[in-house]
């Protein structure tokens, strides 16, 4: 009897741990307690999409915007790449810092200007 209960308890604990691990996937980096870079807080609100969504999907978001703007001629000005800089002022302390941590190096800024204009 004792053993069965213990097994059940361990099972619950295991499931909880797995569950939390799965959720951590979507958690803000700081909530995971890892040695993550401190990102510069945004100057204004809100982000063009939900920040948690942006954290994961901004590459896809930007690629889609890029094709839509350049090829289809649809310009949504407050969602343009240049507009990111109105809130995320300093590229070095926001985009670059996180990219360095994640080990990605988008080449966008060999062409695109990232200038903060309040």
């Amino acid at each position: 009897m004792m053993r069965l209960r213990e097994v059940a308890l361990y099972r619950i604990i295991l499931m909880a741990v797995v569950g939390v691990l799965c959720l951590m996937d979507n958690m803000p980096v700081w909530a995971m307690g890892a040695a993550v870079p401190q990102l510069q807080p945004a100057q204004d609100k809100p982000c063009v999409r939900d920040p948690a969504w942006m954290r994961r999907n901004h590459p896809e978001f930007l690629r889609q915007k890029r094709d839509l703007t350049v090829r289809e001629g649809v310009r949504v000005r407050n969602e343009s790449l240049a507009r990111c800089a109105t809130c995320h002022q300093d590229r070095a302390q926001f985009c670059d810092r996180c990219h360095q941590y994640a080990g990605v190096d988008p080449n966008c800024f060999t062409c695109h200007n990232y200038v903060h204009t309040p």
């Binding site: 809100p46 001629g73 649809v74 310009r75 000005r77 407050n78």
Partner: peptide
């Protein structure tokens, strides 16, 4: 809501 467009007279969204 998404942030409002800048004060200029150009609409926020334009299309070819």
């Amino acid at each position: 809501a998404a942030p409002q467009p800048s004060s200029s007279s150009v609409p926020n969204k334009t299309e070819a």
